[in-house]
Design a protein around this nucleic acid. Structure first.
Lengths: 122, 122
DNA sequence: ACGCACCGATTACAGGTGTAGTCATTGGAA
DNA sequence: TTCCAATGACTACACCTGTAATCGGTGCGT
């Protein structure tokens, strides 16, 4: 249903998830400067996101104000699931195991996750 | 350095990670049938993977035998990290928290992960 | 010796993506 | 009133991707 959001598009979604509604210009100003995008690029991306129905715009005087139609949590859930499915047979444990093996996990992480799991069990 | 592997390409990588070396034909035979690819499609993908330097081929009589040049674990680590960076500020805990909240995580999962973490702490 | 089946190489082509530039309209400064 | 600057719409364009078809060489069956 909801179309796939590309990498560049995701960058502007993050801006809107952080604050909305915003005008195209405001979005452009908030996009991380590392991307080095022109205002036009941002407008193109907003247009594509509109076409994909993941944001909406309402007129506000001379310009439009944009806001997300999908929740960040939903997007994040979808992407996470895709990764787990593709690389870990859809299971969470191997993902954690993998990262753990790779030393990408700190003692702090371990403690936090343990606490989290404890909560879940109740 | 190592170029990005696309989705379709990843599918053939999985075949080679499972068994290698293989001829183009053998790879085609092992690609999940749901994809419904022609042998030509698989050959194109092998060619692109070669160009990207993530597989190699050596002549074996009339045909080539292909084998991966990158390890699955490395690929998986890279993809996992990308996701974590993009969506979870590079932290593992929020990822796990998110998945746990969302997808009914089973008691079995919890037990497994707890065991795993316990091992890590030692 | 002959043609075919098989192989890798080359070419194709539409749709998505990253990254803009140009055009037409219009409210507002001068 | 006039002209500009800002704004959204449309157009551009090269590269990547998914998905093949076609071409050219050649060992093998007959």
């Amino acid at each position: 249903m909801t179309e796939r959001i590309s990498d560049a598009e995701h960058t502007v979604m993050e801006v809107l998830w952080d604050t909305s509604p915003l005008s195209a210009q405001e979005v452009a100003e908030r996009v991380p400067t590392e991307r080095g995008w022109s205002a036009n690029t941002v407008k193109t991306l907003l247009g594509r996101l509109l076409a994909k129905n993941v944001i909406a715009h309402k007129e506000e005087g001379r310009r439009y104000l944009y806001r997300p139609l999908v929740e960040r949590a939903d997007y994040v859930a979808g992407e996470s699931r895709r990764l787990m499915d593709r690389l870990f047979g859809g299971k969470l444990t191997p993902l954690v195991a993998h990262l753990a093996e790779r030393d990408e996990i700190t003692d702090q992480d371990i403690a936090e996750i343990e606490a989290l799991l404890k909560d879940l069990k109740s």
